[in-house]
Design a binder for these strands. Structure first.
Lengths: 242, 242
DNA sequence: TATTGTGCGTTGCCATAGCAACGAAATAAT
DNA sequence: ATTATTTCGTTGCTATGGCAACGCACAATA
Protein backbone atom coordinates (compact mmCIF):
# COMPACT_ATOMS: atom_id res chain seq x y z
CA UNK A 1 0.00 0.00 0.00
CA UNK A 2 3.04 2.22 0.16
CA UNK A 3 2.71 4.55 -2.79
CA UNK A 4 6.46 4.98 -2.90
CA UNK A 5 7.06 1.40 -3.65
CA UNK A 6 4.25 0.94 -6.12
CA UNK A 7 6.05 2.97 -8.74
CA UNK A 8 8.70 0.38 -9.23
CA UNK A 9 7.24 -2.60 -7.53
CA UNK A 10 9.25 -5.26 -5.86
CA UNK A 11 12.62 -6.53 -6.80
CA UNK A 12 12.18 -8.95 -9.67
CA UNK A 13 13.71 -12.36 -9.24
CA UNK A 14 15.22 -12.98 -12.64
CA UNK A 15 18.38 -11.06 -13.21
CA UNK A 16 17.62 -9.94 -16.74
CA UNK A 17 14.21 -8.70 -15.69
CA UNK A 18 15.81 -6.91 -12.79
CA UNK A 19 18.24 -5.21 -15.09
CA UNK A 20 15.56 -4.19 -17.48
CA UNK A 21 13.34 -2.79 -14.79
CA UNK A 22 16.22 -0.93 -13.24
CA UNK A 23 17.28 0.53 -16.55
CA UNK A 24 13.78 1.78 -17.27
CA UNK A 25 13.58 3.42 -13.89
CA UNK A 26 17.04 4.94 -14.04
CA UNK A 27 16.27 6.68 -17.31
CA UNK A 28 14.66 9.35 -15.16
CA UNK A 29 17.63 9.79 -12.86
CA UNK A 30 20.18 12.56 -12.98
CA UNK A 31 23.06 10.14 -13.10
CA UNK A 32 21.85 8.46 -16.25
CA UNK A 33 20.38 11.54 -17.84
CA UNK A 34 20.66 11.55 -21.60
CA UNK A 35 21.20 7.82 -21.89
CA UNK A 36 18.38 5.66 -23.13
CA UNK A 37 17.01 2.52 -21.56
CA UNK A 38 18.90 0.03 -23.67
CA UNK A 39 22.15 1.82 -23.19
CA UNK A 40 21.58 2.02 -19.46
CA UNK A 41 20.96 -1.68 -19.39
CA UNK A 42 24.32 -2.45 -20.89
CA UNK A 43 25.94 0.22 -18.76
CA UNK A 44 24.58 -1.39 -15.61
CA UNK A 45 26.23 -4.65 -16.58
CA UNK A 46 29.43 -2.88 -17.44
CA UNK A 47 29.32 -1.14 -14.05
CA UNK A 48 28.52 -4.43 -12.34
CA UNK A 49 25.69 -2.81 -10.45
CA UNK A 50 24.37 -4.95 -7.64
CA UNK A 51 20.75 -5.00 -6.57
CA UNK A 52 19.09 -5.64 -3.28
CA UNK A 53 15.92 -5.51 -1.28
CA UNK A 54 15.86 -3.71 2.03
CA UNK A 55 13.55 -3.74 5.00
CA UNK A 56 12.40 -0.86 7.11
CA UNK A 57 15.04 -0.02 9.69
CA UNK A 58 17.81 -1.64 7.74
CA UNK A 59 21.11 0.20 7.46
CA UNK A 60 22.04 0.91 3.86
CA UNK A 61 25.21 2.61 5.00
CA UNK A 62 26.67 2.76 8.47
CA UNK A 63 28.54 5.61 10.03
CA UNK A 64 32.19 4.80 10.26
CA UNK A 65 32.13 2.36 7.39
CA UNK A 66 34.31 2.91 4.34
CA UNK A 67 32.33 4.16 1.36
CA UNK A 68 33.02 2.58 -1.97
CA UNK A 69 29.60 2.37 -3.57
CA UNK A 70 27.04 4.85 -4.70
CA UNK A 71 23.51 3.92 -3.76
CA UNK A 72 20.40 4.62 -5.79
CA UNK A 73 16.93 3.92 -4.47
CA UNK A 74 14.36 2.41 -6.81
CA UNK A 75 11.52 2.23 -4.36
CA UNK A 76 10.95 2.96 -0.73
CA UNK A 77 12.37 5.72 1.41
CA UNK A 78 15.38 6.21 3.61
CA UNK A 79 16.89 8.77 5.89
CA UNK A 80 20.38 10.15 6.03
CA UNK A 81 21.24 10.34 9.68
CA UNK A 82 24.05 12.08 11.43
CA UNK A 83 25.15 11.39 14.93
CA UNK A 84 26.63 14.49 16.51
CA UNK A 85 29.82 13.67 18.41
CA UNK A 86 28.32 11.82 21.33
CA UNK A 87 24.67 12.52 21.41
CA UNK A 88 21.48 12.22 19.55
CA UNK A 89 20.72 11.55 15.93
CA UNK A 90 19.54 14.17 13.52
CA UNK A 91 18.00 13.60 10.15
CA UNK A 92 20.14 15.29 7.55
CA UNK A 93 17.78 14.59 4.70
CA UNK A 94 15.34 12.06 3.38
CA UNK A 95 15.59 9.95 0.26
CA UNK A 96 12.96 8.71 -2.12
CA UNK A 97 12.86 6.80 -5.39
CA UNK A 98 15.69 7.68 -7.77
CA UNK A 99 17.54 9.56 -5.10
CA UNK A 100 21.22 8.86 -4.86
CA UNK A 101 23.33 8.76 -1.75
CA UNK A 102 26.97 8.65 -0.76
CA UNK A 103 28.08 10.00 -4.12
CA UNK A 104 30.09 12.86 -2.63
CA UNK A 105 31.63 10.64 0.00
CA UNK A 106 32.62 8.07 -2.56
CA UNK A 107 34.18 10.56 -4.93
CA UNK A 108 35.97 12.28 -2.07
CA UNK A 109 37.23 8.87 -1.01
CA UNK A 110 36.51 9.49 2.66
CA UNK A 111 37.65 6.60 4.78
CA UNK A 112 34.82 6.69 7.28
CA UNK A 113 31.29 7.71 6.47
CA UNK A 114 30.18 10.57 8.70
CA UNK A 115 26.55 9.57 8.23
CA UNK A 116 24.32 6.54 8.28
CA UNK A 117 21.57 5.78 5.82
CA UNK A 118 18.61 3.95 7.28
CA UNK A 119 15.60 2.66 5.41
CA UNK A 120 12.34 4.14 6.61
CA UNK A 121 10.27 1.73 4.53
CA UNK A 122 10.97 -1.39 2.58
CA UNK A 123 12.13 -1.11 -0.99
CA UNK A 124 14.94 -1.96 -3.33
CA UNK A 125 18.03 -0.26 -4.55
CA UNK A 126 21.27 -0.73 -6.39
CA UNK A 127 24.88 -0.11 -5.55
CA UNK A 128 27.44 0.94 -8.08
CA UNK A 129 31.15 0.67 -7.55
CA UNK A 130 32.72 4.09 -7.81
CA UNK A 131 35.89 2.89 -9.48
CA UNK A 132 33.90 1.44 -12.31
CA UNK A 133 32.31 4.76 -13.04
CA UNK A 134 35.51 6.69 -13.43
CA UNK A 135 37.37 4.01 -15.28
CA UNK A 136 36.24 3.87 -18.87
CA UNK A 137 35.81 0.35 -20.04
CA UNK A 138 37.51 -0.73 -23.19
CA UNK A 139 34.62 -1.68 -25.38
CA UNK A 140 31.09 -0.68 -26.13
CA UNK A 141 30.40 1.85 -23.41
CA UNK A 142 30.86 5.21 -24.99
CA UNK A 143 28.25 6.28 -22.51
CA UNK A 144 30.77 6.21 -19.76
CA UNK A 145 31.71 9.70 -20.82
CA UNK A 146 28.16 10.83 -20.44
CA UNK A 147 27.93 9.14 -17.09
CA UNK A 148 30.99 10.95 -15.86
CA UNK A 149 29.76 14.27 -17.14
CA UNK A 150 26.52 13.67 -15.30
CA UNK A 151 28.38 12.84 -12.16
CA UNK A 152 30.43 16.00 -12.44
CA UNK A 153 27.29 17.95 -13.09
CA UNK A 154 25.55 16.52 -10.06
CA UNK A 155 28.43 17.26 -7.74
CA UNK A 156 28.97 20.71 -9.17
CA UNK A 157 25.31 21.61 -8.90
CA UNK A 158 25.31 20.49 -5.32
CA UNK A 159 28.26 22.77 -4.80
CA UNK A 160 26.44 25.71 -6.26
CA UNK A 161 23.43 24.95 -4.08
CA UNK A 162 25.60 24.75 -1.00
CA UNK A 163 27.18 28.02 -1.92
CA UNK A 164 23.82 29.68 -1.97
CA UNK A 165 22.78 28.06 1.27
CA UNK A 166 25.92 29.22 3.00
CA UNK A 167 25.32 32.67 1.61
CA UNK A 168 21.97 32.81 3.32
CA UNK A 169 23.27 31.38 6.55
CA UNK A 170 26.12 33.85 6.75
CA UNK A 171 23.78 36.78 6.68
CA UNK A 172 23.50 38.40 10.05
CA UNK A 173 19.93 39.56 10.26
CA UNK A 174 16.70 37.85 9.43
CA UNK A 175 15.61 40.76 7.31
CA UNK A 176 18.73 40.31 5.24
CA UNK A 177 18.08 36.61 4.77
CA UNK A 178 14.52 37.16 3.72
CA UNK A 179 15.49 39.90 1.31
CA UNK A 180 18.25 37.84 -0.19
CA UNK A 181 15.95 34.89 -0.66
CA UNK A 182 13.14 36.87 -2.22
CA UNK A 183 15.47 38.83 -4.47
CA UNK A 184 17.05 35.60 -5.62
CA UNK A 185 13.65 34.21 -6.43
CA UNK A 186 12.70 37.35 -8.29
CA UNK A 187 15.96 37.23 -10.16
CA UNK A 188 15.60 33.64 -11.26
CA UNK A 189 11.92 34.00 -12.10
CA UNK A 190 12.66 37.30 -13.78
CA UNK A 191 9.64 39.02 -12.28
CA UNK A 192 8.89 40.92 -9.10
CA UNK A 193 5.74 38.89 -8.54
CA UNK A 194 6.21 35.20 -8.00
CA UNK A 195 5.35 32.26 -5.84
CA UNK A 196 7.80 30.33 -3.74
CA UNK A 197 8.05 26.55 -3.42
CA UNK A 198 7.91 26.62 0.37
CA UNK A 199 5.27 27.07 2.97
CA UNK A 200 6.17 29.16 6.00
CA UNK A 201 7.63 26.37 8.03
CA UNK A 202 9.75 25.11 5.19
CA UNK A 203 10.94 28.60 4.39
CA UNK A 204 11.86 29.13 8.03
CA UNK A 205 13.77 25.86 7.93
CA UNK A 206 15.58 26.78 4.77
CA UNK A 207 16.62 30.14 6.14
CA UNK A 208 17.33 28.57 9.51
CA UNK A 209 15.14 30.97 11.46
CA UNK A 210 12.20 30.57 13.74
CA UNK A 211 8.86 30.27 11.99
CA UNK A 212 7.05 32.76 14.16
CA UNK A 213 9.91 35.21 13.95
CA UNK A 214 9.77 34.83 10.18
CA UNK A 215 6.06 35.58 10.21
CA UNK A 216 6.66 38.63 12.33
CA UNK A 217 9.38 39.98 10.09
CA UNK A 218 7.40 39.32 6.92
CA UNK A 219 4.53 41.18 8.54
CA UNK A 220 6.79 44.10 9.30
CA UNK A 221 8.07 44.23 5.76
CA UNK A 222 4.54 44.17 4.45
CA UNK A 223 3.64 46.94 6.87
CA UNK A 224 6.52 49.02 5.61
CA UNK A 225 5.31 48.58 2.08
CA UNK A 226 8.43 46.78 1.00
CA UNK A 227 6.76 43.57 -0.01
CA UNK A 228 3.31 42.13 -0.30
CA UNK A 229 2.23 38.54 -0.08
CA UNK A 230 -0.61 36.16 0.33
CA UNK A 231 0.16 32.54 1.05
CA UNK A 232 3.03 31.56 -1.21
CA UNK A 233 2.55 34.42 -3.61
CA UNK A 234 4.96 37.23 -3.05
CA UNK A 235 5.56 40.49 -4.77
CA UNK A 236 8.37 42.92 -4.22
CA UNK A 237 7.08 46.45 -3.94
CA UNK A 238 10.16 48.44 -3.08
CA UNK A 239 13.26 46.69 -4.25
CA UNK A 240 15.60 49.41 -3.05
CA UNK A 241 14.63 49.22 0.58
CA UNK A 242 15.19 45.51 0.93
CA UNK B 1 58.56 42.69 -5.39
CA UNK B 2 55.33 40.82 -4.92
CA UNK B 3 56.25 37.62 -3.18
CA UNK B 4 53.29 35.87 -4.72
CA UNK B 5 54.56 36.32 -8.20
CA UNK B 6 58.16 35.49 -7.47
CA UNK B 7 57.38 31.82 -7.08
CA UNK B 8 56.62 31.35 -10.71
CA UNK B 9 57.99 34.49 -12.25
CA UNK B 10 56.54 36.17 -15.26
CA UNK B 11 54.81 34.64 -18.20
CA UNK B 12 57.49 33.32 -20.53
CA UNK B 13 57.33 34.49 -24.09
CA UNK B 14 58.11 31.32 -25.99
CA UNK B 15 55.23 28.91 -26.08
CA UNK B 16 57.21 25.76 -25.36
CA UNK B 17 58.89 27.42 -22.40
CA UNK B 18 55.51 28.60 -21.21
CA UNK B 19 54.15 25.08 -21.41
CA UNK B 20 57.09 23.65 -19.60
CA UNK B 21 56.95 26.18 -16.81
CA UNK B 22 53.21 25.72 -16.45
CA UNK B 23 53.54 21.96 -16.31
CA UNK B 24 56.18 22.13 -13.61
CA UNK B 25 54.04 24.43 -11.55
CA UNK B 26 50.86 22.44 -12.04
CA UNK B 27 52.49 19.26 -10.75
CA UNK B 28 51.69 20.63 -7.32
CA UNK B 29 48.04 21.33 -8.04
CA UNK B 30 45.10 19.22 -7.01
CA UNK B 31 43.79 19.00 -10.54
CA UNK B 32 46.94 17.44 -11.89
CA UNK B 33 47.76 15.43 -8.81
CA UNK B 34 49.45 12.14 -9.61
CA UNK B 35 50.53 13.16 -13.08
CA UNK B 36 54.16 13.98 -13.68
CA UNK B 37 55.57 17.05 -15.38
CA UNK B 38 56.06 15.54 -18.79
CA UNK B 39 52.62 14.05 -18.85
CA UNK B 40 51.10 17.35 -17.74
CA UNK B 41 52.92 19.09 -20.54
CA UNK B 42 51.33 16.88 -23.15
CA UNK B 43 48.01 17.05 -21.36
CA UNK B 44 48.06 20.84 -21.48
CA UNK B 45 48.46 20.69 -25.23
CA UNK B 46 45.76 18.12 -25.50
CA UNK B 47 43.48 20.33 -23.42
CA UNK B 48 44.44 23.36 -25.46
CA UNK B 49 45.10 25.35 -22.34
CA UNK B 50 45.50 29.05 -23.00
CA UNK B 51 47.80 31.30 -21.03
CA UNK B 52 47.68 34.93 -20.18
CA UNK B 53 49.08 37.71 -18.10
CA UNK B 54 46.80 39.85 -16.01
CA UNK B 55 47.12 43.22 -14.33
CA UNK B 56 45.89 44.30 -10.95
CA UNK B 57 42.24 45.21 -11.14
CA UNK B 58 41.64 43.16 -14.26
CA UNK B 59 38.53 40.99 -14.42
CA UNK B 60 39.38 37.34 -14.90
CA UNK B 61 35.69 36.47 -14.88
CA UNK B 62 32.73 38.80 -14.90
CA UNK B 63 29.46 38.33 -13.16
CA UNK B 64 26.78 37.49 -15.65
CA UNK B 65 29.16 36.05 -18.19
CA UNK B 66 28.80 32.45 -19.33
CA UNK B 67 31.40 30.18 -17.78
CA UNK B 68 33.14 27.72 -20.03
CA UNK B 69 36.68 27.71 -18.77
CA UNK B 70 38.36 26.73 -15.57
CA UNK B 71 40.99 29.18 -14.43
CA UNK B 72 44.18 28.34 -12.59
CA UNK B 73 46.49 30.99 -11.22
CA UNK B 74 50.23 30.55 -11.58
CA UNK B 75 51.26 33.72 -9.89
CA UNK B 76 49.60 36.71 -8.36
CA UNK B 77 46.41 36.93 -6.38
CA UNK B 78 42.77 37.50 -7.12
CA UNK B 79 39.50 37.87 -5.30
CA UNK B 80 36.19 36.18 -5.90
CA UNK B 81 33.61 38.88 -5.54
CA UNK B 82 29.90 38.64 -5.20
CA UNK B 83 27.52 41.47 -5.76
CA UNK B 84 24.43 41.02 -3.61
CA UNK B 85 21.31 41.77 -5.57
CA UNK B 86 21.63 45.50 -5.88
CA UNK B 87 24.20 46.71 -3.48
CA UNK B 88 27.71 46.37 -2.35
CA UNK B 89 30.41 43.87 -3.17
CA UNK B 90 31.59 41.25 -0.76
CA UNK B 91 34.71 39.17 -1.06
CA UNK B 92 33.74 35.53 -1.16
CA UNK B 93 37.28 34.26 -1.05
CA UNK B 94 40.77 35.03 -2.18
CA UNK B 95 42.92 33.14 -4.63
CA UNK B 96 46.64 32.57 -4.74
CA UNK B 97 49.08 30.57 -6.85
CA UNK B 98 47.75 27.16 -7.94
CA UNK B 99 44.26 28.03 -6.84
CA UNK B 100 41.53 27.15 -9.26
CA UNK B 101 38.35 29.06 -9.88
CA UNK B 102 35.05 28.60 -11.65
CA UNK B 103 35.38 24.82 -11.65
CA UNK B 104 32.02 24.24 -10.00
CA UNK B 105 30.28 26.78 -12.21
CA UNK B 106 31.74 25.24 -15.32
CA UNK B 107 30.81 21.71 -14.41
CA UNK B 108 27.33 22.78 -13.37
CA UNK B 109 27.05 24.56 -16.69
CA UNK B 110 25.54 27.68 -15.17
CA UNK B 111 24.60 30.18 -17.82
CA UNK B 112 25.53 33.30 -15.90
CA UNK B 113 28.32 33.49 -13.39
CA UNK B 114 27.04 34.67 -10.01
CA UNK B 115 30.48 36.00 -9.11
CA UNK B 116 33.29 38.04 -10.54
CA UNK B 117 36.96 37.26 -10.20
CA UNK B 118 39.19 40.30 -10.02
CA UNK B 119 42.97 40.31 -9.90
CA UNK B 120 44.38 41.93 -6.78
CA UNK B 121 47.90 41.89 -8.14
CA UNK B 122 49.49 41.19 -11.47
CA UNK B 123 50.29 37.65 -12.42
CA UNK B 124 49.60 34.97 -14.97
CA UNK B 125 47.19 32.14 -15.29
CA UNK B 126 45.77 29.58 -17.66
CA UNK B 127 42.29 28.73 -18.82
CA UNK B 128 41.18 25.24 -19.65
CA UNK B 129 38.12 24.45 -21.68
CA UNK B 130 35.76 22.30 -19.64
CA UNK B 131 34.56 20.22 -22.55
CA UNK B 132 38.08 19.11 -23.24
CA UNK B 133 38.47 17.78 -19.76
CA UNK B 134 35.46 15.53 -19.82
CA UNK B 135 35.93 14.33 -23.34
CA UNK B 136 38.66 11.75 -23.50
CA UNK B 137 40.89 12.25 -26.46
CA UNK B 138 41.53 9.38 -28.78
CA UNK B 139 45.25 8.96 -28.49
CA UNK B 140 48.03 9.24 -26.00
CA UNK B 141 46.30 10.85 -23.05
CA UNK B 142 45.50 8.04 -20.70
CA UNK B 143 45.88 10.67 -18.05
CA UNK B 144 42.56 12.09 -18.92
CA UNK B 145 41.09 9.49 -16.63
CA UNK B 146 43.25 10.65 -13.80
CA UNK B 147 42.36 14.25 -14.54
CA UNK B 148 38.69 13.46 -14.35
CA UNK B 149 39.08 11.53 -11.14
CA UNK B 150 40.91 14.50 -9.68
CA UNK B 151 38.17 16.80 -10.80
CA UNK B 152 35.55 14.60 -9.21
CA UNK B 153 37.63 14.41 -6.08
CA UNK B 154 37.99 18.18 -5.88
CA UNK B 155 34.30 18.81 -6.32
CA UNK B 156 33.34 16.05 -3.92
CA UNK B 157 35.75 17.27 -1.26
CA UNK B 158 34.36 20.73 -1.59
CA UNK B 159 30.95 19.22 -1.06
CA UNK B 160 32.04 17.50 2.10
CA UNK B 161 33.57 20.73 3.35
CA UNK B 162 30.41 22.61 2.61
CA UNK B 163 28.43 19.99 4.43
CA UNK B 164 30.47 20.53 7.52
CA UNK B 165 30.23 24.27 7.24
CA UNK B 166 26.48 24.14 6.90
CA UNK B 167 26.37 21.84 9.87
CA UNK B 168 28.04 24.44 12.00
CA UNK B 169 25.93 27.26 10.68
CA UNK B 170 22.70 25.43 11.33
CA UNK B 171 23.46 25.10 14.99
CA UNK B 172 21.39 27.44 17.07
CA UNK B 173 23.61 28.53 19.88
CA UNK B 174 27.19 29.61 19.98
CA UNK B 175 28.01 27.09 22.65
CA UNK B 176 26.79 24.37 20.32
CA UNK B 177 28.93 25.62 17.46
CA UNK B 178 32.03 25.82 19.59
CA UNK B 179 31.46 22.37 21.01
CA UNK B 180 30.86 20.88 17.60
CA UNK B 181 33.97 22.45 16.22
CA UNK B 182 36.20 21.41 19.07
CA UNK B 183 34.81 17.89 19.16
CA UNK B 184 35.36 17.59 15.43
CA UNK B 185 38.92 18.68 15.87
CA UNK B 186 39.44 16.24 18.69
CA UNK B 187 37.92 13.49 16.59
CA UNK B 188 40.08 14.10 13.57
CA UNK B 189 43.23 14.60 15.64
CA UNK B 190 42.25 11.63 17.77
CA UNK B 191 43.21 13.32 21.00
CA UNK B 192 41.49 15.56 23.51
CA UNK B 193 44.41 17.97 23.53
CA UNK B 194 45.15 19.68 20.26
CA UNK B 195 45.83 22.97 18.59
CA UNK B 196 43.58 24.60 16.05
CA UNK B 197 44.65 26.26 12.80
CA UNK B 198 42.80 29.50 13.54
CA UNK B 199 43.34 32.47 15.73
CA UNK B 200 40.31 33.90 17.52
CA UNK B 201 39.22 36.18 14.77
CA UNK B 202 39.50 33.49 12.13
CA UNK B 203 37.67 31.02 14.32
CA UNK B 204 34.92 33.55 14.88
CA UNK B 205 34.71 34.05 11.13
CA UNK B 206 34.55 30.35 10.45
CA UNK B 207 31.80 29.82 12.98
CA UNK B 208 30.13 33.03 11.85
CA UNK B 209 29.93 34.53 15.32
CA UNK B 210 31.21 37.69 16.89
CA UNK B 211 34.77 37.56 18.07
CA UNK B 212 34.17 39.11 21.45
CA UNK B 213 31.16 36.92 22.02
CA UNK B 214 33.31 33.94 21.15
CA UNK B 215 35.90 35.01 23.68
CA UNK B 216 33.21 35.42 26.28
CA UNK B 217 31.76 32.00 25.66
CA UNK B 218 35.14 30.31 25.62
CA UNK B 219 35.87 31.98 28.93
CA UNK B 220 32.63 30.69 30.34
CA UNK B 221 33.36 27.16 29.21
CA UNK B 222 36.78 27.35 30.76
CA UNK B 223 35.23 28.67 33.97
CA UNK B 224 32.85 25.74 34.02
CA UNK B 225 35.75 23.36 33.69
CA UNK B 226 34.54 21.99 30.37
CA UNK B 227 37.56 22.99 28.36
CA UNK B 228 40.91 24.56 28.87
CA UNK B 229 42.99 26.53 26.44
CA UNK B 230 45.86 28.85 25.94
CA UNK B 231 46.22 30.59 22.63
CA UNK B 232 45.51 27.99 19.95
CA UNK B 233 46.05 25.03 22.21
CA UNK B 234 42.85 23.52 23.43
CA UNK B 235 42.03 20.61 25.59
CA UNK B 236 38.67 19.09 26.28
CA UNK B 237 38.22 18.43 29.99
CA UNK B 238 34.64 17.28 30.21
CA UNK B 239 33.49 15.81 26.95
CA UNK B 240 30.04 14.94 28.25
CA UNK B 241 29.01 18.43 29.17
CA UNK B 242 29.76 19.93 25.80
C1' DT C 1 -22.58 18.81 10.51
C1' DA C 2 -19.25 17.99 13.72
C1' DT C 3 -14.42 17.07 14.29
C1' DT C 4 -9.76 16.99 13.77
C1' DG C 5 -5.69 18.60 11.64
C1' DT C 6 -2.74 21.97 9.43
C1' DG C 7 -0.89 26.30 8.22
C1' DC C 8 -0.27 30.90 9.47
C1' DG C 9 -0.34 35.09 12.21
C1' DT C 10 0.23 37.39 16.90
C1' DT C 11 2.18 38.53 21.18
C1' DG C 12 4.93 38.69 25.59
C1' DC C 13 8.97 37.22 27.63
C1' DC C 14 13.80 37.22 27.95
C1' DA C 15 18.21 34.79 26.85
C1' DT C 16 21.45 35.22 23.43
C1' DA C 17 24.79 37.38 21.10
C1' DG C 18 26.15 41.47 18.29
C1' DC C 19 28.32 45.92 18.89
C1' DA C 20 31.47 49.27 20.55
C1' DA C 21 34.96 50.62 23.31
C1' DC C 22 38.74 49.84 26.05
C1' DG C 23 42.89 47.66 28.11
C1' DA C 24 46.42 44.23 28.62
C1' DA C 25 49.69 41.24 26.66
C1' DA C 26 52.36 39.64 23.09
C1' DT C 27 54.71 40.35 18.81
C1' DA C 28 56.92 42.99 15.37
C1' DA C 29 59.24 47.03 13.73
C1' DT C 30 62.28 51.03 14.26
C1' DA D 1 65.00 50.00 24.17
C1' DT D 2 61.08 52.10 22.56
C1' DT D 3 57.31 52.38 19.83
C1' DA D 4 53.62 50.34 16.81
C1' DT D 5 50.71 46.71 15.75
C1' DT D 6 48.31 42.75 16.36
C1' DT D 7 45.77 39.63 19.22
C1' DC D 8 42.88 38.57 22.81
C1' DG D 9 40.02 39.27 26.88
C1' DT D 10 36.42 42.14 29.32
C1' DT D 11 32.31 44.55 30.00
C1' DG D 12 27.93 47.26 29.52
C1' DC D 13 24.32 48.19 26.52
C1' DT D 14 20.65 46.72 23.69
C1' DA D 15 18.50 44.88 19.48
C1' DT D 16 17.48 40.63 17.73
C1' DG D 17 15.18 36.71 17.45
C1' DG D 18 14.07 32.13 19.67
C1' DC D 19 10.39 30.14 22.39
C1' DA D 20 5.92 29.06 23.93
C1' DA D 21 1.32 29.63 23.86
C1' DC D 22 -2.77 30.84 21.70
C1' DG D 23 -6.33 31.92 18.15
C1' DC D 24 -8.14 31.96 13.62
C1' DA D 25 -9.04 30.29 8.95
C1' DC D 26 -9.38 26.61 5.99
C1' DA D 27 -9.34 21.88 4.46
C1' DA D 28 -9.99 17.08 5.08
C1' DT D 29 -12.41 13.26 7.16
C1' DA D 30 -15.94 10.93 9.28
Amino acid sequence: MDNNSTSFGDLPKAENERLHKAATALAGSRLFYGINDDEIESLLQCLRASFGKFQKGQFLLMEGDPVRHIGILFSGTAEIIKEDAFGRRTIVSTLGPLDMFAEALVCAEVEESPVSVVASSEGWLCFIDYKRITTSCNSACGFHTRLIQNMLSILANKNVMFNKKVDYLLMKGMRERISAYLLDQAKSKKTLTFSIPFNREELADWLAVDRSALSRELGKMKGEGIIDYKKNNFSIKDKDRM
